[in-house]
């Protein structure tokens, strides 16, 4: 019988330690306290949220001043996810949107709810719905999702350079 076996499935896993670094620690401490903290590049003056790696990818210098961004933002673009896959934690279909938070110069990814997927639009204004404070951790998952604010959509020209 053993001669018939051509393939076996052997799942693997990896545990790792996350080192936040000077950029992410500001962001994570902020989230622990319900604040969205980015950092500004001293050279190009653009604001990164999250301030991943703590470095401006354009200028190659350390990001500096801490800047509170949001909480509201604009959907620049989005995907309606209809694909099931291994490890998926959100029920499909769901809207994964790129949200340009007010005061930030780069979009971040989050979930859109309290709105039919078919009604989500580029330029739509959204605001966060937070988990109960007792559940906060240093993660963007403290925000359950973003929902429409009801404000008029942003003009295309306002966010076109972020696409």
């Amino acid at each position: 019988m053993a001669d018939d076996i051509l393939r076996i499935r052997t799942p693997i896993g990896i545990d790792y330690t996350w080192s936040s670094g000077p950029g992410s620690v500001v962001y994570m401490r902020g989230l622990e306290n319900g604040k969205l903290i980015g950092r500004r590049c001293p050279d190009c003056e653009l604001v990164y949220f999250p301030p991943r790696n703590g470095i401006c990818p354009r200028c190659g210098v350390l990001l500096a001043a801490e800047v509170e961004v949001g909480p509201r933002g604009t959907i620049t673009t989005f995907c309606v996810v209809n694909v099931p896959f291994l490890g998926q934690t959100i029920k499909i279909p769901y809207v994964a949107a790129t949200i340009l938070l007010d005061g930030a110069d780069i979009g971040m990814q989050h979930l859109i709810q309290e709105c039919e997927a078919a009604d989500v639009r580029m330029g739509m204004r959204v605001e966060p719905v937070w988990k109960d404070k007792s559940e906060w951790t240093p993660s963007l998952e403290n925000i359950l999702y973003y929902k429409p604010t009801g404000e008029p959509d942003a003009d295309f020209d306002v966010y076109a350079r972020h696409l």
């Binding site: 995907c79 996810v81 994964a96 696409l163």
Partner: peptide, 26 residues
């Protein structure tokens, strides 16, 4: 998922689809 981010990411299609949407709009 990237640690401490929202786990909305769905493969290569999930990454490229918003960019396709931007192209169509633009």
């Amino acid at each position: 998922p990237l640690p401490f981010s929202m786990p909305v990411h769905a493969g290569a299609g999930g990454y490229f689809s918003p960019i396709v949407r931007s192209y169509i709009r633009r």
